[in-house]
């Protein structure tokens, strides 16, 4: 006797998956193919004349030192944001997990920043650090530190990394906390009885058992740093000074929607797409092996 459920109707399965296929086609495959098509054209903004140029847009892209700089900036930015957001969130989650009294209040407060839109988060941080009006910039100046992120690329990078990570910490915190609460208490208690201190218990039991959560968050955070930080960059630095915070997704926007260079911008988004697909594949093939489920 066969226990599997078998569809007798040959058409029904196709109908059932059709909505999903349709959504993928309309919202992913179609725009992606448009980008691919645009990236091999040189076209005027109005679409009145266009010329097929093969890979010229790509050759130009990789011959442009500012594009290569943008790749480097994106790497530094994404790694910093992911690291800062993950470690801070993990630390907070460990602390929150130990709190007994008023735990709910802490947790609620820690989740709040996630409800703030990236653009608004950018504005908030900008107000704090504005070299002329910002209160933090003022305090730094009083301490003898000359804060001017409009001119100093390093400071600009610190600022956008902090702003971007701050927003993501809440999200990571929630997942870490949930992950930790799923770890059986008996394991930790057994280790405690065997004489393991809190640090040892964390590194030998909690952290390894959290790896599925950590892995999931690494993937999410990298994607976040690549794409969702657009609003923060746009509000805080506009990619400046001198391209110091010009991450790839922001450059696509500036060249395409402000510069009206459709071909060049499309070529950049194709490259960006390839990078993110590549990164995700690497994460799933190599890092996932180290995950204990």
């Amino acid at each position: 006797m066969e226990k599997r459920v078998v569809f007798r109707n040959r058409v029904l399965p196709y109908i059932l998956v059709a909505p999903q296929i349709a959504v993928t086609l309309v919202f992913f495959i179609w725009p992606a193919s448009q980008a691919l098509y645009q990236s091999v054209l040189i076209e005027d903004p109005f679409g009145l004349s266009s010329e097929f140029v093969w890979g010229e847009n790509f050759v130009e892209l990789f011959g442009d030192p500012w594009y290569l700089q943008s790749i480097q900036v994106t790497a530094v930015f994404s790694v910093s944001v992911a690291l800062l957001a993950l470690t801070t969130a993990l630390y907070l989650a460990v602390q929150a997990d130990r709190v007994i009294r008023g735990a709910m209040a802490y947790k609620t407060l820690l989740v709040w920043p996630y409800a703030v839109a990236p653009a608004v988060a950018g504005v908030l941080w900008l107000f704090l650090f504005n070299p002329t009006l910002g209160i933090v910039a003022y305090a730094l100046r009083k301490l003898g530190y000359d804060w001017n992120h409009l001119l100093d690329g390093r400071q600009a990078m610190y600022l956008v990394v902090i702003a971007a990570a701050w927003k993501q910490i809440s999200y990571n915190f929630l997942f870490f906390l949930a992950g930790m609460q799923a770890i059986p208490r008996s394991l930790i208690e057994a280790a405690a009885i065997d004489g393991a201190g809190p640090a040892r218990r964390f590194w030998t039991i909690v952290f390894p058992l959290l790896t599925p959560t950590t892995f999931f968050l690494v993937v999410i955070n990298v994607v976040y740093a690549f794409f969702d930080t657009f609003g923060i960059i746009h509000q805080v630095t506009e990619g400046g000074p001198a391209g110091a915070t010009n991450i790839l997704v922001y450059k696509v926007f500036r060249d395409g929607f402000i510069g009206l260079d459709l071909g060049g911008s499309a070529a950049q988004s194709v490259v960006l797409m390839a990078i993110v697909i590549g990164l995700t594949v690497i994460q799933f093939r190599y890092i996932e092996r180290k995950v204990h489920y």
Binding site: W66, L151, D152, G153, G240, P241, A242, G243
Partner: peptide, 10 residues
């Protein structure tokens, strides 16, 4: 020009 001027000012 903005990018290059910023590099000059810095």
């Amino acid at each position: 020009i903005y990018e290059e001027l910023e590099a000059i000012w810095a």
